[in-house]
Simulated scan of single mutants.
Amino acid sequence: MGRFDHRTVLVTGGAGGQGASHVRAYQAEGANVVIAGIDESRGCALAAELGARALYVRLDVTDETSWSAAVQAAEGHFGPLSVLVNNAGVQNPAAPIETTERRVWDRILGVNLTGAFLGIKAAAPSLRRNGGGVIVNIASTSGVGGTAMYAPYVASKWALRGLTKTAALELGRDRIRVNAIHPGVIATPFITEPAVGSDAPISDFYSAEPFAIPRLGEPADITRALLFLTSDEASFATGSEFVIDGGLLLGPALQHEAA
């Protein structure tokens, strides 16, 4: 038996680099998975690959009506939600604050922050109908420290921390746990390919060489933590923040001299 047998899990950005990893793992653990996002071709292809226990729903996370329709479709197909993973996110083109356009600021906060807010708002009634459940917001180590040239992204992820803690306080007595994961630099197109309007990807601003664990992360590194955090094994964890970054935030690792 899987840890998520007969449970309904909705993952936003579910056909992306990290999202697809999460969706596949939940489905392998017995869950009914809802692949939510705007990339219809990739979402439908992933649902077809996974079979009867997978459903693609089109979801614009910045639109409240779209959220209502997605949750309704999930419930109609599989039943009330057990898990919501607010995974969808976008990055801004690298630029200093002084030259960052307002429309860029609005878009990044709209997807990364308002999207999670609307997700919590839409999913909470369904989770209550289920008798409880778990929400995880995928934030970033940029929400723990600053990152030059990425002010909108950093601001959205810092704010997501406060949203997580507030939701945990409001929903805890309904048996709904709310936590955040802060990935470091993970090897997905989100990191390794330039954002629209950018000349360089975020990975160009980092070298893994100084990390305590000197490599970029893989989507599976985040997925394994996510499965634990949304399982019954983590039933006493809410309002928590889990940093998975290979030691990025620790500072440079001790360099051993050659013998």
Rank of each mutant, 00 (worst) to 15 (best):
I97A: 14
T99N: 11
T99G: 09
T99F: 11
R103V: 14
V104E: 06
R107W: 12
R107F: 08
R107T: 11
L109M: 08
G110D: 01
G110M: 06
V111E: 00
N112L: 07
L113D: 02
T114W: 06
G115D: 02
G119S: 06
G119N: 08
I120N: 05
K121V: 08
K121I: 07
A124G: 04
P125A: 13
S126Y: 03
S126R: 05
L127H: 01
L127A: 06
L127G: 08
R128C: 12
R128H: 09
N130H: 13
N130G: 14
G131I: 04
G132R: 05
G132C: 03
G133A: 08
V134K: 00
V134M: 03
V136M: 09
V136W: 02
N137F: 03
N137M: 12
A139I: 10
A139Q: 01
A139N: 12
S142W: 04
S142A: 15
G146C: 07
G146E: 08
G146T: 11
A148I: 09
M149K: 13
Y150L: 14
A151N: 08
P152A: 08
P152Y: 03
P152W: 02
V154R: 00
A155M: 00
A155P: 00
A155Q: 00
S156D: 04
S156P: 00
S156V: 04
K157A: 08
W158E: 06
A159E: 01
R161Y: 07
G162N: 12
L163I: 09
L163A: 07
T164V: 14
K165A: 13
A167G: 10
A167I: 08
E170T: 13
L171Y: 04
L171K: 02
G172W: 01
G172K: 03
R173F: 13
R175H: 15
R175G: 01
R175A: 15
R175W: 14
R175V: 07
I176C: 05
V178M: 05
N179L: 03
I181N: 03
I181E: 06
P183R: 06
G184V: 00
I186G: 01
I186N: 00
A187P: 01
A187L: 11
A187V: 10
T188L: 06
P189C: 13
I191E: 05
I191A: 12
T192W: 02
E193W: 13
E193F: 11
E193H: 15
P194D: 11
P194E: 06
V196P: 05
V196W: 03
G197L: 10
S198L: 08
D199S: 15
A200S: 15
A200K: 15
A200Y: 13
P201C: 07
P201W: 01
P201H: 09
D204K: 12
F205I: 06
F205D: 10
E209Q: 14
E209G: 11
A212T: 10
I213T: 12
P214D: 10
R215Y: 05
R215P: 06
R215K: 11
L216E: 07
G217L: 02
E218H: 14
E218I: 10
E218F: 11
